[in-house]
Design a binder for these strands. Structure first.
Lengths: 160, 160
DNA sequence: ATAATAAAAGAATTTTATTCTAAATAAATT
DNA sequence: AATTTATTTAGAATAAAATTCTTTTATTAT
């Protein structure tokens, strides 16, 4: 079910990825200057990286506080999915406040990451959204007091 | 210790954030067209959103498979920090493969999110990086089999 | 070596970003 | 309610960047 994709990135691609990972709004001209190449060449490569699905998307990281979303929680969910499906996972993914849904090893579970305004918002979500999913057997919630680091930067290889 | 910041966003700001959250490379001209405003006005607002720390950064989401990082894990870490400090959290944050570090409620713990090439890479990390942090009492690792959803999009209010 | 393929540079054109000023709107003060 | 003040937006002009196309260079395979 997993499609095998062929990537094949060289050192220049890695450099572009490194720059884009730091600031996705860096323009071609700047990247070109930094790498000592022509802007047109950079453009070609960036387009290829997008086509090859190496770069999946560009997103703006918004301050949760600015939107008054002060509570971050992780919830372990035990569920009885029909074997081989991710029915529950797909339902969980549809909830807007749920940022991540991971199918985890051991006791038929999911781990989800949820952002709500406050504790009341979390309770609401558990009652109204999770409560609607019948396959869920139990949940265990972990409240985040403070986030020290939150990035999605990958470690980019130096040599090949 | 928490700095109280004043945001104060209007409906236009929300629309800009909505667009930027979907595609951070959307240019001012396009946003202006979509919102029926002048590009200069959009530029002003985007700059202000950056200044006010509403938009924190722009990042490119890179396909972990393209960099051969196939294993995602969450690790609960029990540690004895000096009271009121996050010494361990700060040390954890320095490990490049650690994407997230959350200080969680209950038994002096952290929850971290880690991306490695494979199981061997995870073992290495636990031995070489976590192993160096003496304050760590114990760890409990959860392996992700498959990720159904992984975004950091926030729910943006419709009215105010 | 030579041909074939792919990548990069360079130049020209289109589009966008940016700056500045003026107009309009909203907020505050009297 | 009227006037002032501040904020926001539009519009025009310029600078910068994106994009396209052609030529050149580099790579790879035969």
């Amino acid at each position: 079910m997993t499609t095998k994709l062929e990537f094949s990135l060289d050192q220049i691609d890695y450099q572009i990825l490194r720059i884009m990972q730091e600031n996705a709004r860096t323009n071609n001209a700047d990247i070109a200057r930094e790498l000592g190449m022509a802007p047109s060449a950079i453009l070609e490569r960036v387009k290829k990286l997008e086509q090859k699905q190496v770069i999946l998307q560009y997103n703006a990281k918004i301050n949760p506080d600015a939107l008054d979303q002060k509570l971050l929680s992780f919830i372990f969910i035990k569920a009885q999915d029909p074997i081989g499906t991710q029915k529950v996972g797909i339902l969980l993914a549809k909830i807007p406040e749920v940022q991540e849904v991971h199918d985890i090893a051991g006791d038929d579970g999911y781990l989800i990451k949820v952002r709500t305004n406050d504790a009341a918002g979390l309770v609401d979500l558990m009652r109204n959204s999770l409560g609607k999913i019948e396959e869920i057997i139990s949940t265990r919630t972990t409240i985040v007091l403070e986030t020290v680091k939150e990035e999605q930067k990958l470690v980019i290889p130096t040599e090949d």
